[in-house]
Design a protein around this nucleic acid. Structure first.
Length: 510
RNA sequence: GGUCCGUUCGUCUAGCCAGGUCAGGACGUCAGGUUUUCAUCCUGGUAACACGGGUUCGAAUCCCGUACGGACUACCA
């Protein structure tokens, strides 16, 4: 790797929420920057006014914030290479587009959409290899290459709409070395004369991207592999603008694929896949349709980052759990894989479980308190910490907590039919009545004492643990599941235990 | 159609560059164990080098071809 200062950018267009592929691109850029003490820049590529979505920019910033990806420079934080919103840099691009024309590397084109369509149809009918606006077809179109200079000037003066196109050479090899894929070679005859400047006065991605990366001194372009095919046009631009020697290195990362089959994951997939594709919940501004987010689904940001980091990259060791700061230590571009990966929601869940069980009870309890408050339940922190400690091993998300622990806060309202059938026998009510006396007489109502006394009762009467404990669980919890019965009893307290047993005797019928 | 990229268990992947491993790990799944129950946990099993040629004593690894998949092919990014 060369020794120039690492400056990387994440450059989304604000056409909607970021999806996990976008977050991963941001993450890899960020990790790479931090690893080499470089700068991570957020640039907003809003050159398409038609696709601009209000709120998308804030969404992007908020998503990065939630993920703990800190922006060093760019939209929202500033910096000396600003502005960082392309719509605010219009004049800059114009200057370079004109420079290219003067130097003979670009030209004006006046073709209307209809004329373009006609050309494509014609080439299609001729069974031409491709239907591009290129070195061949440009000779029969209305542009400053075919028109004489007077006409061109007249058209421009009369405000005829025009675009500026890149004049791609007829027969040259255009090559670049991709950090992930190695050397990639294109024949210029296969490239089209890309539009650099649109008739609305805005540059296209291709021009803006190259100009900004150069002006912002970007050292490495880390982006999705959907950009590989347009990279040769960018390489040509660097050359024609005289920046060939300062061209950034390119690293095209493999795409994230749909889990069920085909194609790259896209924003449109929304919730259709059975798992969120967005980091944060998003409400479509037009349809009001709500798409779920990882945050709202209960993922921890550090778990989410961990999941994404291991999608298309791996450390080469068997370690799988990494904090973001560990990642910034060991991340490297050369361990990015070449092939696309599918997102596995099951493994994602497992990751979150790992993070959940490693969090301390106080933090978990405070998160759970929010859920409880929403349900109108008041409980002391002390109590909730105890409960969380008992159930966290059994949960992947904070949202699993309620199902695992509702019985601490309310009496069972119904009794699981299967468990009743299996465990509530003819003589069970009598047993429960006996047990009731045992329980009422326990001094110091804690798990240890309860366990001692109950087991003592069972052994003395030669009853068997399952015969007594299962029905008791049914009374206290309403089902055959849950954590240690004696701890449950301790937490809900003697009076409540007694009441629930009485309720059980009365309500549970075979 | 054209151009470019890719292909190791169901999934994420290690191994490939510098040929020699019973092709390793994780998720899932299955079985057993632990537990009063369920879950966790522990132990074990399951399952892959896309195909065909070559080079070589030896190929997942190097070369060629085929198949399949993907991306791009807009006055979108």
């Amino acid at each position: 790797m060369n020794k120039k200062k690492v400056r990387v950018r994440f450059a989304p267009s604000p056409t909607g929420p970021l999806h996990i592929g976008g977050v991963r691109t941001a993450l890899f850029n960020y990790l790479f920057a931090k690893k080499y003490n470089g700068t991570f820049i957020l640039r907003i590529e809003d050159t398409d006014q038609n696709r601009y979505v209000k709120g998308a920019e804030d969404y992007i910033i908020n998503s990065l914030k939630w993920c703990n990806i800190k922006i060093d420079e760019g939209v929202g934080v500033g910096g000396k290479y600003g502005p960082y919103r392309q719509s605010e840099r219009k004049d800059i691009y114009k200057k370079y587009a004109e420079q290219l024309i003067t130097a003979g590397f670009a030209y004006y084109a006046f073709d209307t959409p209809e004329e373009l369509e006609e050309m494509r149809e014609k080439l299609k009918a001729e069974k031409s290899e491709n239907q591009q606006y290129n070195f061949l077809s440009r000779t029969s179109m209305r542009n400053s290459l075919t028109l004489n200079p007077d006409e061109v000037e007249k058209l421009i003066e009369s405000k005829t709409p025009f675009v500026i196109r890149l004049k791609v050479p007829e027969d040259e090899n255009v090559e670049f070395t991709d950090v992930v894929h190695g050397k990639i070679i294109f024949k210029s005859s296969q490239l089209d004369d890309k539009i650099l400047f649109k008739s609305d006065g805005m540059p296209t991605y291709h021009l803006a991207n190259v100009v900004d990366d150069h002006l912002m001194k970007i050292s490495h372009v880390i982006r999705g592999s959907e950009w590989i095919n347009s990279t040769p046009s960018h390489v040509l631009l660097y050359k024609y603008l005289g920046w060939e020697n300062e061209m950034p290195e390119f690293a095209h990362m493999p795409l994230i694929l749909k889990p069920n089959g085909k194609g790259k994951l896209s924003k449109r997939d929304g919730d259709a896949l059975g798992f969120p594709v967005f980091p944060l919940e998003w409400t479509n501004t037009e349809t009001k349709e709500v798409s779920s987010g990882y945050r709202e689904s209960g993922y921890f940001p550090d778990a989410f980052i961990n999941i994404l980091a291991l999608l298309g990259w791996n450390p080469g060791t068997e370690q799988e759990i990494f904090s973001i700061s560990e990642l910034t230590e060991i991340f490297s571009l050369d361990r990015i894989g070449k092939s696309g990966s599918r997102f596995d929601p099951e493994k994602a869940k497992w990751f979150n479980h790992q993070y959940l069980i490693n969090k301390n009870n106080t933090e978990l309890a405070s998160l759970y308190q929010d859920v409880l408050k929403n349900k109108g339940i008041e409980a002391s922190d002390e109590l909730v910490i105890k409960i969380v400690d008992l159930i966290k091993e059994r949960a992947s998300f904070i949202s699993d907590f309620w199902e695992q622990s509702f019985f601490f806060f309310q009496k069972p309202t119904n009794y699981d039919a299967k468990a009743v059938k299996k465990n509530w026998k003819e003589n069970t009510p009598n047993m429960m009545k006996e047990l009731l006396t045992v329980i009422e007489n326990i001094e110091g109502f804690n798990a240890e004492n309860i366990e001692g006394e109950v087991k003592n009762y069972i052994e003395k009467n030669e009853l068997g643990f399952g015969k007594v404990l299962n029905p008791l669980r049914l009374c206290l919890v309403g089902s055959g599941k849950g954590p240690s019965l004696f701890h449950i009893a301790e937490i809900i307290g003697k009076a409540e235990v007694v009441e629930r047993i009485n309720n059980g005797i009365e309500k549970i019928k075979k």
